[in-house]
């Protein structure tokens, strides 16, 4: 009894030691950001000036139009990417499961391929494609979303695949079809509601990835949130660091909330 007790105490001590040390390593730079953004550069004390500027929408649009523009562009990109990703993946993956199981491997391979092609390489290859996109659709930042769909493909595929495995798509759709539902209705009213959690987590991951994307936007000279933040860093260090910290905190809140959403529906 007592050996087991000491064993447990030792393990708990190890756990807290390891977790404490790594969390310290994780938090020092984050604290560094907070400390830097609350410095009063004139008097040398502490001030919340940077943060009040950041939450003041009017002031940001007024004094930092590039930042506001990048932020709005990133929101539009997130929405666009999620919609295109879902429209592309959910029907295809369901259809492959129902009617073309022989293609499962091929679709999986293609969806996981972007893990092998780094974003920086994709940019090189996308240059001629985007010459066409700009020609046909215009120079709008939102068209970057077409490439972002590729970037989020592996993550979205895994979430949706896990969701599809957990339900019996075949039985569900056959039941609906035999009751006279059209394929569209099967998709919209049968498959999608059953995939709620998977769709949600795929969407959240995509949104977070898009909000953090820098490589493609920067090299194609389009202004999204990250590029605007990077360029702001050259002129107003404090505000750009504040934007960086805010975006990290936002991503954390999203992921933390997601860990509860997934659990609730499973039980």
């Amino acid at each position: 009894m007592s050996t087991r007790h000491t064993e447990r105490r030792k393990r708990a001590a190890l756990r807290w030691g390891v977790i404490g040390l790594t969390l310290l390593f994780f938090f020092i730079p984050l604290y560094g950001m907070l400390e830097f953004t609350t410095r009063d550069l004139i008097s040398g004390g502490r001030t919340g000036r940077v943060w009040t500027t950041l939450v003041d929408v009017g002031q940001v649009t007024d004094r930092y139009p590039a930042l506001a523009e990048g932020f709005l562009a990133s929101l539009a990109l997130a929405l666009f990417t999620v919609v295109v990703m879902l429209l592309l993946l959910v029907p295809t993956m369901t259809w492959v499961r129902l009617r073309l199981p022989g293609l499962t491997r091929t679709v999986e391979f293609i969806c996981l391929l972007p893990l092998t092609v780094p974003a920086i390489v994709l940019v090189v290859g996308l240059t001629p494609i985007y010459a066409w996109v700009s020609y046909l659709l215009g120079e709008g930042t939102v068209w970057l979303g077409l490439a972002y769909v590729i970037l989020v493909l592996p993550y979205a595929y895994r979430s949706l695949d896990a969701g599809l495995r957990a339900i019996d798509v075949k039985t569900l759709s056959e039941a609906a079809r035999s009751l006279g539902a059209s394929w569209l209705r099967v998709m919209w009213q049968i498959v999608l509601p059953n995939l709620r959690t998977a769709v949600l987590s795929a969407s959240f991951l995509s949104v977070a990835l898009v909000l953090g994307e820098f490589t493609i936007a920067n090299l194609f000279s389009r202004k999204n949130l990250q590029v605007a933040m990077y360029e702001l860093g050259k002129s107003d260090g404090q505000l750009s660091v504040a934007v960086g910290l805010a975006s990290l905190v936002f991503a954390f809140v999203v992921l933390f909330a997601m860990s509860f959403v997934g659990r609730k529906e499973k039980s």
Partner: peptide
């Protein structure tokens, strides 16, 4: 996954 530029700032 979502750090990028912000991590360099940190």
């Amino acid at each position: 996954q979502f750090g990028g530029v912000a991590l360099a700032f940190a």
